[in-house]
Design a binder for these strands. Structure first.
Lengths: 250, 250
DNA sequence: TATGACACTTGATCCATGTCATTTTATTGA
DNA sequence: TCAATAAAATGACATGGATCAAGTGTCATA
């Protein structure tokens, strides 16, 4: 019996369809009906596995399609000639990246794994074709693009107007929210990225990240042990960012 | 004869079709054939005129579609509760804005005119419908979205990794390029935005903008008179930003 | 041509972060 | 188990821009 179960699970894993993927309702297929999902499914290039710190693409690489993270984590970034990286985004399981290739069918930034990572590819030509007959998919793609854009805008506000304290608090809350979304604890998690990458995302120095983590800890807001984060006082974090974005709500 | 000419011109102006618009090959219709253009044309809401400093939309307003600037200039921005504005983009004639509404059919940022401005609206529902039968339009929309995204990414690099000098140089070169694109002088132009807005875009203080303009002028790079900019030494400007983005090219 | 109102400039001062140097801690691999 | 290496933390110091506080110029309106 146990053996049979394993067999079934193995088959499912081998198929790795969107339908069987636990992340599908966080990912691009969200909102599609079973039939639509089935069509889309046929075109998806099934998960590839990469080790830690492997480059997935770089500027001028041909744009093949959207990438969906299944496990692990990916960072996208631009660099200065002097080497500094500006991290554009961290991409966790269920999230999509690679949209920067849409403008000219060439990638514009770098994408690199932050740990052992598996991902799917949604080839753009097929996706585009499917959009012709599937309004729902079209909307889903636009929703996704709009979402990315709004994330970038929030990131611009962070880099342009927030203090280092506010930036780190915003960052922790963002990661927390995303763990929660996947059904994990929003107050106790393992960061997938290095201090260096956090600094690159927040536009501050690594040393500042270290010092701020220490300061947050001393204030009893979080407990940090290397990459393990435990949020002790999430209200305090929310308070810290209360003035940061004015969404027009009261 | 003269009278007839005027009559013809008047008719064309009244119609204000994309076909007759001098900006159409910079704008969304770029790349569409005459027939496609004609179909699109029917759906476009014809130019509206607004005075200086008028709000076009704000967060939570219903998303109606894309906006195309015909004349004047528009800024889009987010604000902190304390009032600071992070300018997300300046939108000059021929450029499109309002894409932030794609995520949830609600605008997420503010859009305000910077001078007397006229613009067209491309209603989203119709645009989406047209995309079904017009692959070229679909590609054009994706191209546009990709472009916006890449602009935001360059802006992130600017805010996260560049010095104030580099930021201002990058900004001047960007405006210069966009004037050139429209067929105007790339070295002598009138800025449509205030010092305050430049500061908000670059993530620095107004005072710093003033001092940097002065410093650039003393170095013989530009001549600034209020909003009138004359670029004296564009090579120097390019030099200043040479290390800023590494596009992977040699 | 006076009178605000506002945008911009300039100067003086301060401080939040960056930079550089060193130590500590974790990780890897022989 | 012990280097060897890399990542993170810490300390001392420097500084690019922010902030605050006057000024000056410009434009609109009466």
């Amino acid at each position: 019996m146990q053996k049979l179960m394993n067999q079934v699970q193995l088959t499912k894993q081998l198929k790795v369809s969107c339908e069987s993927c636990s992340l599908s309702d966080l990912c691009l297929p969200r909102g599609l009906n079973a039939k639509e999902l089935d069509v889309l499914d046929d075109y998806i290039e099934r998960p590839r596995n990469l080790a830690h710190n492997v480059q997935i693409y770089q500027p001028n690489d041909k744009f093949v399609g959207f990438y969906a993270v299944r496990s692990g984590g990916v960072k996208t970034y631009l660099t200065k000639k002097t080497g500094e990286q500006q991290i554009l985004g961290f991409h966790l399981p269920g999230e999509v990246f690679g949209l920067d290739g849409l403008e000219n069918s060439k990638q514009r930034c770098y994408a690199t794994t932050m740990e052992n990572t598996s991902y799917c590819i949604l080839p753009y030509d097929q996706l585009d074709q499917l959009c012709e007959d599937m309004p729902e998919l079209r909307h889903q793609v636009c929703h996704l693009l709009g979402h990315e854009m709004n994330c970038d805008h929030a990131h611009l506000l962070l880099l342009g107007q927030q203090t280092a304290h506010e930036r780190l608090a915003t960052f922790l809350l963002s990661i927390s929210t995303r763990f929660k979304r996947r059904g994990f604890s929003p107050v106790s998690f393992m960061l997938p990225m290095s201090r260096h990458d956090i600094a690159g995302y927040l536009g501050i120095a690594v040393e500042t990240v270290s010092r701020l983590f220490k300061s947050f800890q001393e204030k009893g807001i979080v407990k940090i042990n290397r990459k393990q984060v435990d949020i002790i006082d999430i209200d305090k974090l929310n308070e810290m960012v209360a003035n940061c974005e004015d969404s027009g709500q009261p």
